[in-house]
């Protein structure tokens, strides 16, 4: 089971609380309670998306560091190694998220587009500009596990 499945299971537990509140409000025909429960469910989705993204970012950095270490290895030809040396003056954590992603997946492929969409979603929430972003947390968790499994490893 991946870390993304673990988070999806945690989301499941909390989401069930808000689902139960919606079910009760529907049974009671309490529209105000129904709306409140729906908003809480949405907020919970946003929080879990951020949590998923944080773990995804760690996976990106870890996979990037493996490739970067190989690039810096004395076994790598100097013509290639010098590029890595020039680029990696500091920590891999200081390199932009999407730059690392470009090392791990082809920029022209759907995987890159999906990751870019996550990144935009994360930034949208972090900026606090648009709080109406919608998420399907369990779908994202499943997709993130697939994306990580397809990262370039060398």
């Amino acid at each position: 089971m991946s870390v993304f499945d673990d988070i999806a299971n945690n989301h499941l537990a909390t989401n069930s609380v808000f689902e139960a509140a919606e079910e009760q409000a529907y049974e009671d025909s309490d529209e105000a309670a129904f709306d409140r429960a729906g908003q809480a469910r949405k907020d919970n989705d946003q929080l879990y998306f951020l949590y998923l993204f944080t773990r995804f970012e760690l996976e990106v950095t870890a996979a990037f560091e493996v490739i970067a270490a190989a690039g810096l290895s004395p076994a790598t030809q100097w013509q290639e190694r010098r590029v890595w040396q020039a680029w990696l003056r500091g920590s891999a954590r200081d390199i932009g998220f999407l730059s690392k992603v470009e090392i791990l997946t082809d920029k022209g492929r759907p995987d890159y587009a999906a990751i870019k969409r996550y990144y935009d979603g994360r930034n949208t929430i972090a900026h606090g500009r648009v709080w109406d972003e919608q998420f399907s947390v369990r779908a994202v968790a499943q997709d993130m596990a697939g994306l990580v499994s397809r990262f370039a490893r060398r």
Partner: peptide
């Protein structure tokens, strides 16, 4: 329509499931 992870979302609510 614009849902991260999906191409649209609809929630279904009854007194037994959501």
């Amino acid at each position: 329509l614009w849902v991260i992870g999906a191409n649209g979302r609809v929630d279904i609510i009854s007194r037994r499931a959501a």
